[in-house]
Nucleic acid binder design. Structure first.
Lengths: 190, 190
DNA sequence: CAAATAACTTACTACTTAGTAAGTTTTCAG
DNA sequence: CTGAAAACTTACTAAGTAGTAAGTTATTTG
């Protein structure tokens, strides 16, 4: 049913994600993607008819990656501390490349997003918050993590620290982000 | 030296600020401002030749407002708790109008900003962090505020909670932002 | 081998963007 | 009353935007 299978669609998704995390959704064009991949503008439209379709699939891909992270952390023998660290590591990787998290980037454009993307973004945020909340709740129960707030509120606090932290790092330098990470782990594990 | 003094320039600044906090810097145009103020496109260019000039002045205005806040909090008889609350109240006011803070909005566009705006933004961030840090340091010394981190790190944690918190509120609802505020005040004042 | 289909390219449109140059109106200073 | 200047409007440009319609090429399947 196919003719000449390529990896163009995946490359567009990968590049779109990179552009959003580096410049923002409204600061890259189909022409930017086409130029980088050495294809024509219309080829991008072939895979993603509208820019909102591309955005929705990028957010969906991010959702799937978090589902994968969640599954990989369900294996036995991983401490709550390690689970939180795995979550933080994702942000640290972004930070080291001068990128910001998808939620922070697309979130600041929230009022200009097509409805489809708004729905996907909400799904993503709830997924991430739920994931962190679960780790916190279990970690507290096991006595591996300490915090005075509810798991729900603490998950919000951690996530906002990290999301805004990677943005702050681009403005005032990476040491501010590092300080956040150190403080978070110290708070949670003593 | 003038002919027909108007308040057009101030209106443009006010509207530009509103647009940035509601839609983002790259999601409004001079035409949007002109339409709203019932003037022509070129009239906006008369007051702000380039969009980057407008942005720089908007950030500068924000800086001045924080200087004013700082001065108003220097009066005697204001507790550290009240000073922190005054800072939080600014974010709460934004949140109630579906807006996000200028730093969060412009910060997520950082890599696409003209150099002039980058410099101003950095100045603003350092000002705000310094302001909060000072209140925290004095509050701790007086025994009015409690936190285990350094004043510097705690100021970063609070600011990232609030900046990302107002963005989160647009996605998952205002109760998440309220939870952040309650938790912050509880942590600091017991 | 033929037709169908995937994966494009070519060539275009309609629209929006920031920005400019030149002219107009209003008001005030001398 | 006469410049001069502020505060515009009119009219325009060049570049970039998303998006589309139609044609091309390569490959696989019946």
């Amino acid at each position: 049913m196919a003719a000449r299978p390529t990896d163009t669609k995946e490359s567009i998704l990968r590049l779109g994600m990179e552009f959003i995390q580096t410049y923002g959704y409204h600061s890259f064009s189909y022409a930017d993607i086409a130029k980088e991949l050495k294809i024509k503008n219309a080829a991008v439209h072939y895979h993603f008819p509208g820019k909102e379709d591309l955005l929705a699939e990028i957010v969906e891909q991010y959702i799937q990656r978090y589902h994968e992270l969640a599954r990989s952390l369900e294996k036995p023998g991983i401490s709550s501390r390690q689970k939180i660290q795995a979550f933080i590591n994702r942000y640290t990787a972004l930070c080291e490349h001068g990128k910001i998290c998808l939620i922070g980037s697309v979130g600041s454009d929230y009022n200009t997003l097509p409805e489809k993307a708004k729905v996907k973004l909400t799904e993503l945020v709830k997924l991430v918050l739920g994931l962190v909340e679960k780790v916190l709740r279990e970690g507290k129960k096991k006595g591996e993590l300490t915090f005075s707030e509810t798991a729900r509120v603490k998950s919000i606090l951690i996530m906002t620290n990290l999301a805004a932290g990677v943005q702050l790092a681009r403005i005032t330098g990476q040491q501010d982000y590092t300080a956040i990470c150190n403080s978070l782990m110290k708070q949670l594990t003593g």
